[in-house]
């Protein structure tokens, strides 16, 4: 069984790490989680990005956050990627599988997955 003692051990491991997160220069992955996004399947998309970041051990450099409706409900689930010094990239009609590919090719590989962006 998961115990609070185990949680305390994680806490002790985390304590020093928390302060060094670089939110200024880091990458932000923002998932639309309003009614429209949730109904279209945003929850598993968000979970997939969180899992990919954790698997890659990049939680200091990449944050995954949630936002409300940005007004393009018919394109949900919508994911926006913000990288320092670069233009925002908006991915539309996302799925967990597409999230995997965006993470590998764009977030880690630096190449935008154009076919999943708006207007494609």
């Amino acid at each position: 069984m998961k115990s609070l003692a185990e949680l305390a051990a994680i806490r002790d491991k985390m304590k020093d790490k928390v302060a060094i997160r670089d939110s200024e220069n880091g990458t932000r992955i923002v998932v639309g989680m309003a009614t429209c996004g949730i109904a279209a399947g945003a929850r598993p998309v968000l979970a997939q990005f969180v899992e990919e970041v954790a698997k890659a051990g990049l939680s200091d450099a990449i944050t995954v956050t949630q936002t409300g409706c940005i007004g393009i409900c018919q394109y949900e689930p919508v994911v926006e990627v913000f990288e320092a010094g670069k233009e925002k990239v908006t991915y539309v009609k996302m799925t967990p599988d597409k999230a995997k590919r965006v993470f590998a090719e764009h977030i880690q590989g630096g190449k935008v997955v154009a076919e999943y962006t708006m207007g494609n």
């Binding site: 806490r11 304590k15 928390v18 970041v53 954790a54």
Partner: peptide, 27 residues
């Protein structure tokens, strides 16, 4: 609230903490 008593200043949204919460509920 109970988790925070253990965690102190460590925020709940740290990936390791979220993973623990997920396992805790799944169990």
């Amino acid at each position: 609230i109970a988790l925070r008593e253990v965690l102190g200043d460590v925020p709940l949204d740290e990936p390791e903490i979220i993973a623990w919460i997920k396992d805790y509920l799944t169990e």
